[in-house]
Write a protein that binds this DNA or RNA. Structure first.
Lengths: 246, 246
DNA sequence: CGGCCCATTGACTATGGTCAATATAAGTGG
DNA sequence: CCACTTATATTGACCATAGTCAATGGGCCG
């Protein structure tokens, strides 16, 4: 295999949907062979480097799509530069705003990202023709709304300690979902896909506070830091308990 | 007319959808005569008193519906009693969680409330048969998600002053939408539908801080308080400027 | 008139932010 | 592969914003 090809999209040959790694969880999850044919006709792939902007607030964005690999952050900014993350997208998550061209947040790649994209107009037309597609998007949007509401509680009421504990717990749960092979032992190894600054942006904190909380968790034995990005959680349960949820 | 009847729902006779005050903005907005017939067969009305619980977190809720009159709040709580509002529903807003019986927040009436309700199962069945219904719900859910993200920025990054300014601005805009008769003069009169405690719950603050901010706004001439619930905003623009958004 | 709920105000405190100085990791080019 | 550079992370000292606790004031209803 040619080692210079690092991503499907560089081949510029759309791979078949049925071989897609996010086939069963993305917006296309309920589609069948025939419908994949329609999707394949309007889809294209694109890669983004860490930090690269994918779309900007206020722009008229003419595409929507799915995260195939990598992590995408959605952020909102204020006039004086304050920034708040308002969404964090992992593989299979949907990116974009159907039924409204104008985006009111910025989307940027956190890690290397591969997107499976559709131009908005044909995608919306297809949605009208394929109710299964629309239904899946509705399901996903309702779930995102639930997640956003969980985040409102976090930002509005949780302490710095609870915020970081919640964050780590959520990341552990997510990674356990993906590599659902391993037996659900009490411990977990996390490779943080983001910088301290991204984490702070996420939790409504500063990098200093995030760093200090990591230090406190380390001192109390709740985590081991094998590198700034590599966190070992010996006991996920007690981490989860610190998050303050029921 | 019998003066003891204070609400349509007490008559126990479903009024016709085409005469409904929220007909053009609710989940049924895109429905046509025939579809209203189907809806009318499964709908019913119910009233709630201020403070009354409509549905509780963790419960299996077997209905969804629209707010016809009044204001409904959605809140999430933590083990130790901290509470955060995660949604505030006005007439025409949709209440409930299709495709997932279990609710993960509490819903309670803030004012007197009238709901137009559908049992979940028949409503979901109808949604599958009537794509227009599903499409409208998708639109509304996407808008709610946008609003929730605006709120994430507010809770995560705004100061107490900016939070209250944002809140008042949003209420003014909303009330201007509903009584869109008056010329959009620079000033506005607000009847707050809620207590200080509700406002604090909304903004991730305490009642004391909310009260102090009201006092500061009053002192600086940004508002006049004609009663604790009656706010006059002489210049909506400068209030909106304080909110910190672009 | 009295009681209750809600709102306001004051004094004090604590949590997390700011500013500044290192320390560590991750690239980059010789 | 190693110096050099840059980006990222940690730690400390100090401070400000909003929270806590407590007392007081004002409406509204029985």
């Amino acid at each position: 295999m040619d080692k210079t090809v690092t991503s499907l999209s560089e081949l510029n040959i759309p791979p078949k949907c049925h071989a897609c790694p996010i086939r069963h969880r993305a917006v296309c999850a309920y589609c069948e062979a025939e419908e994949f044919g329609l999707l394949e006709r309007i889809k294209f792939y694109r890669d983004f480097e860490p930090g690269q902007e994918i779309a900007g607030a206020g722009e008229a964005v003419d595409f929507v799509g799915s995260v195939v690999t990598g992590v995408v952050k959605l952020t909102k900014g204020m006039a004086d530069g304050r920034q708040q993350m308002v969404g964090l997208l992992f593989p299979s998550d949907f990116l974009g705003r159907p039924m409204n061209a104008r985006l009111d947040y910025d989307a940027a790649a956190v890690t290397k990202v591969a997107l499976c994209m559709f131009r908005r107009a044909p995608f919306e037309a297809l949605m009208r023709r394929v109710p299964r597609l629309q239904q899946r998007l509705l399901e996903m949007t309702l779930s995102e709304l639930d997640a956003a509401r969980e985040w409102l509680l976090l930002l509005g009421r949780k302490t710095a300690e609870e915020k970081l504990a919640s964050f780590l717990t959520i990341l552990v749960r997510r990674s356990q979902l993906r590599e659902s092979s391993e037996p659900d032992s009490g411990s977990a190894d996390l490779e943080l896909p983001m910088t301290r600054s991204d984490i702070a942006e996420c939790l409504g904190l500063t990098i200093e506070t995030v760093s200090r909380q990591f230090a406190r968790f380390k001192k109390s034995g709740l985590i081991e830091l094998r590198g700034p990005r590599n966190v070992h959680v010996p006991d996920v349960e007690s981490m989860s308990a610190l998050a303050g949820d029921y």
